[in-house]
Design a protein around this nucleic acid. Structure first.
Lengths: 197, 197
DNA sequence: AGTTACCTATCTTCTGATAGATAGTTATTC
DNA sequence: GAATAACTATCTATCAGAAGATAGGTAACT
C-alpha cells in the first residue's frame, strides 16, 4: 500500500518527524529567538554560532529561511499538542482538561521566560512567508479543535474555545509587556472561574 | 511657573505633541509597517520611499530607530486614549464604557485590517530597545488604568481590567492568525456577556 | 545669522543565499 | 573482500542587497 505523502503532513504520522541532533539544536535556537523577537529575530549566522557550525551548514539542514520557520512552528505545534494529551479522556472532566491547557501555557512562560511561539508569530502573520503563516494557522486550528473537544459536556458557562484561547494568548502578551507575570495568572483565574460556574 | 518636563510625558499635556506634516506621514507609514510585521518590519528606506523623501531625511526627523519607534508608540497611545474618551463620565455605566473599548479595537481591526500596535510590539518586548519597550509598557498601564476606572461601580462579574484587555489582545491575534475576523467578535461577545451578568 | 527640511554620497555591518571543496560514512557492485 | 559510487554533514569563500547611520552640502524661510 502506498501512503499518501500529503496525508502524512496533516495527520499523526507527522508528529514523529525526527531530526538529527544538530538540526534539533538549530531548531531549539531558532525557536528561542523567534519567541523572544519574532521571525526577523532569527539569523542564520547567529544560529550557526550558537550551535557551533557555519551559516552555510544551517542552509544544508534548512535550505531557505521559510523552511526553517515552518519546521520550528510544526515542531512546536506537535510539542504543545503532545503536552496537552488527550482531550477526550473519559477519566477527566472539562475543568481538569482546561486546567491542563492553562498549565501548559503557564509552564512555557515561567520556565523559559518566553511566550507562546504562535502568539508572537500570529501577531506578525501579515508579513510572514505564506509557508510559515500557514503553519501558524494550523497551530491555532489544532489547539482550537483540542479545546472544543475538551469542553464537550462541560457544565458551567466556560466560554468558547476561541474565548479561552484568546485570554491565554492575550494574558501572555500583557504579562510580558508589563513585566508582570501575575497578570497572566489573573487571566487564568478568570478562565477557570467561569468554567467552574 | 516652571513646568516639570518629566511630568509632561506622563500627563495630558503630552497628548498634544505636534509633528510636521512630513513627520506625521513618516509616523503613519511606520505604524502601518509595525502593526503588520513588528519593529523589524520598518526600514528607513521603505519609509522614505513611501513618503517621497530620502532615507537620510527620515533620520532628520527621527535620529535613531528607537526614537522613531518610541514616537510611533506614544502617538498611538494618545490616539487610542483619545478615542476612548473619559472613563468616568457620569452619564454612562460600565457596560457602555467597555462596549466603547471593544469598539475602538474592533474599528482598528476592520478599518485598517491591522491589529493593535502594542499587541504586536508587546509580543516581541524582549527584543525591543528599552526606549520602545518602555513606551509599550506605558500603553498597557494607561489602558489598564482607563479600564479600571471604567469598571468602577460595575454591577455584574465582568472580570478585571487585565482579563478584559487580555481577551481583546488575544482575540485580535486569533482573528489575524486564522484569518477569521469572527473570532475577534466572539471574544468581544464573551466580554460583554460577562459584564451584563 | 540661524534654523528648517531636505539632498547627495558614502560607510560599515548584517542579511539570506550559493558554489564548490572535503572528509567520513554507508551502500552497491564486481 | 575490495573497489567504487553515493550520501551526509560540514567547510571556505563569496555575492548582492539591505540595513542603520553619518558627513557635509543646498535652498528657503525667519
Amino acid at each position: 500500500m502506498v501512503v499518501n505523502a500529503y496525508l502524512l503532513i496533516d495527520n499523526k504520522f507527522m508528529e514523529n518527524q525526527t531530526y538529527t541532533a544538530k538540526a534539533a539544536e538549530i531548531l531549539d535556537a531558532a525557536e528561542r529567538h523567534m519567541r523572544a523577537g519574532g521571525y526577523d529575530a532569527v539569523s542564520f549566522r547567529d544560529l550557526a554560532d550558537e550551535v557551533g557550525i557555519k551559516s552555510s551548514s544551517v542552509h544544508y539542514h534548512f535550505p531557505q529561511k521559510p523552511d526553517l520557520g515552518e519546521a520550528v512552528v510544526r515542531r512546536y505545534t506537535d510539542t504543545v499538542l503532545g503536552a496537552l494529551g488527550a482531550p477526550d479522556d473519559a477519566g477527566e472532566d472539562a475543568y481538569a482538561r482546561i486546567e491542563r491547557l492553562c498549565a501548559v501555557y503557564r509552564t512555557a512562560l515561567s520556565q523559559d521566560g518566553l511566550i507562546c511561539l504562535c502568539c508572537v508569530l500570529g501577531a506578525e502573520t501579515r508579513d510572514l512567508p505564506d509557508q510559515v503563516a500557514s503553519a501558524v494557522n494550523q497551530f491555532f486550528e489544532r489547539v482550537l479543535a483540542w479545546t472544543g473537544t475538551a469542553l464537550k459536556n462541560a457544565t458551567g458557562q466556560g466560554g468558547t474555545p476561541a474565548q479561552i484561547l484568546a485570554s491565554l494568548q492575550g494574558g501572555m502578551i500583557l504579562a510580558m509587556a508589563t513585566k508582570q507575570p501575575a497578570l497572566f495568572d489573573e487571566t487564568v483565574t478568570g478562565i477557570l472561574e467561569r468554567l467552574a460556574g
